[in-house]
Amino acid sequence: MATRPKPPAVDGARAALLTPALLIVTLGALAPVLVIALYSILTPGDYGGVSWTVSFQNWLNVIAERDFLTDEMTLAAAHLEIFWRSVKLAFLTTLLTFIFGFPAAYFIATRPPHRRDLWLMLIMLPFWTNLLIRIFAVMQLIRNDGIINNLLLSIGAIEAPIQMLYTEFAVLVGMTYLYLPLMVLPIYASMERFDFSLAEAGYDLYAPRLRVLQQVILPAIKPGIIAGSILVFIPSLGDYVVARVLGGGKQLMLGNLIGMQFGELRNWPLGAALSLTLLAIVAVAMVIYVRTAGAEEEPHG
């Protein structure tokens, strides 16, 4: 770890071998972003699409709206509310998946090696089912006539069904359930490499369980936690389906707002501007997160 080999120089053959990868990156990642960036400074077409007149109005519309009557510009309260809800729910989803995922990963990593695969398979099992089916399953659990409410009613814990479906809570439950494996797997991967004699050394040196967790285990598996958080946070922030189904169109997230611009509202340029805003929020959040999470750690090498 003390010395890190220098990256080898790119020579001809290597460049040739890299070409497919570079092509995919260019066509698959860079090009769409450029198209979206271009769209975001054009004017909406009458029936969707864009008309080729440059305008920065869309960017203004991301956070502001013009009052029909007075023609005054005011902050677009609806948009801001959706931004805020998206960031909040994505953050809470990350936190919840960590709270549930960490013990799960710890549990699996401390099983005898030949049993771990079975537990991992159970974690990944839901992936074999279609996304919508999984979301509808959550719906069956939490709707007014669903399993949870019926159960609570039958044991007399509540008098009337609790409204869970079409609330932020529903979206949160759905996303946590959906993205949990994305948190468990990277944490498990770094925990599996963790040398448990380090934890024993911690106990031996007068650190009770929680101190060992905090002082020895967490620092060692931090890369896994960072990876898991990124994997969960990004799709949660841009979520579309969960908010659509479990939020019932009332608890809109950024993804739904963007979807609407390209769909019923036929305002592609605003949709493009919103997409780039989402990208920017993700980028800023990642920078802040990685900076704070890696703060105590000195650079290696």
């Binding site: 040398d195 004699s197 380090l198 024993e200 050394a201 911690g202 031996d204 020895v216 060692a220």
Partner: peptide
């Protein structure tokens, strides 16, 4: 204990 693998905290 002095562990056989030393078990020094890497961080």
């Amino acid at each position: 204990t002095v562990f056989q693998s030393y078990a020094l905290f890497p961080h």
